[in-house]
Design a protein around this nucleic acid. Structure first.
Lengths: 241, 241
DNA sequence: CCGACCAAATTGGTCAGACCAAATATTAGC
DNA sequence: GCTAATATTTGGTCTGACCAATTTGGTCGG
């Protein structure tokens, strides 16, 4: 969020990961502020701020008599990025859940955008899709253009709820993937098919068709990402042996 | 989240609402901790905690030299509930966006649940749908059962990303609606049709059909909620005149 | 042995004052 | 008017203190 070099953020990160690693049981009392201040050789004020952050993430519940560990189910989505990269390589299942959720939200957005777009916007959308399709064989050059396309869609749809979720999830997801060096290799033919279908659906103003195109696109992305993670795991296993 | 009767939470809530009411421009410097401590007749420690909360919501960016106001686009979904009830009656557009987002996430969940459910779970789902359909004419009795159904779906699908989003959004949405006393009146025939279609889709293990049933259900809920808000607005207008 | 009750200890919530690093505002010089 | 130096402001953190709320441990009675 902001100046995350502060002591309280550092303490929060360490405690967050301990909680996510299940070092504490749900309902258990968390160490006291005074104990944590001693453990981290910090002031109680810095520890209080760290605990307030954990509280706001839903990981603990602060109350007089001592904070309690909360169930992960009541946590905020802010924990998903850290949860994804808790171990040596990303949690493949959680990564897949991210992608499924992106797909669902994108489906909603593209339908809304095609419904709401004026002629100029539809033309712009088509232009961007054509531009992107030139890079079906170059994922890294295509990706920033895809992001711009998503932004355009989001602006046309103008659904704040979806935007805030999408921004938050994407930031965490992208950071986690970069951190672990996972790069999915998309199938070129699949990508070309996607762009073609998307272009047609826009010209026909067929939101359902566009949504279907994106669904297929995300299925391919899920496949490619799963493969990339497996490959990475195997590399790491060979390295250890 | 937790003990929200604390001074820091109170201060945070007041400042959050001022920000959401656009009392400050994006990029502008926020009042200093010392000024805010004076304004609220509180210690700097309590103010610091409040600002840390605002920072974590993405509403401000704390840094030496003074915190800066951030664009709403970078905020966390935790602001959506408060944003919804900023004024006398809920923001109808935002309420609708909530419902659209619930629909998209539910669609994903029901498809996943039908795909993953074993026989016992399918039977349980069917039972719950039949139980619910008995209350098609009594929204308030039906609603808790619908919540349980959603929980079952969520448990079967087991997508943590969707669960955390759903839990957070739902908590904020329900609180906002209760606070404003808005109660949508669902069309009984529509509800009955929904339950029937849902029951059939489960027995056929047809996830797409179930998703379609929920889409239609949410369309009806959107219509009913929009009407309820309009009715409320008109009541309040008459009251003022 | 178990449950109820009470006192002591522990814990969170907040305060005031101090100090240092980083950013901002002001002033002086060209 | 522009730039650099200086002063001021601001955030980040610390220490020690106090009060309200919760937890713990001990005692007593059934």
């Amino acid at each position: 969020m902001s100046d995350t070099n502060t002591l309280s953020h550092e303490i929060c990160g360490i405690l967050r990961d301990e909680i996510l690693l299940q070092r504490y049981r749900s309902g258990e009392r968390f160490p006291s502020e005074r104990d944590l201040a001693s453990r981290f050789d910090a002031s109680r004020g810095a520890v209080r701020e760290a605990l307030s952050q954990l509280d706001q993430m839903g990981l603990i519940r602060s109350q007089p008599g001592g904070a309690r560990i909360q169930s992960i189910d009541s946590a905020s989505i802010a924990i998903l990025g850290p949860l994804m990269v808790l171990n040596e390589f990303p949690d493949a299942e959680l990564v897949d859940q991210f992608l499924q959720t992106f797909a669902a939200l994108t489906s909603l957005s593209i339908k809304g955008a095609i419904e709401k777009a004026d002629e100029a916007q539809l033309i712009q959308m088509t232009k961007m899709v054509v531009e992107m399709s030139r890079y079906a064989n170059d994922f890294e050059t295509m990706q920033p253009r895809m992001s711009l396309f998503h932004e355009l869609i989001s602006n046309i749809t103008d659904n704040l709820v979806v935007r805030l979720i999408g921004n938050d999830l994407k930031a965490q997801f992208v950071e986690g993937m970069m951190q672990s060096g996972i790069k999915p290799m998309m199938n070129e033919l699949s990508l070309e098919g996607f762009f073609k279908k998307l272009e047609i659906s826009i010209s026909k103003k067929d939101g359902a068709m566009a949504a279907d195109a994106f669904d297929q696109h995300f299925e391919e992305l899920r496949r490619a990402t799963k493969l990339a993670i497996q490959t990475r795991e195997q590399e790491l296993s060979l390295k250890t042996a």
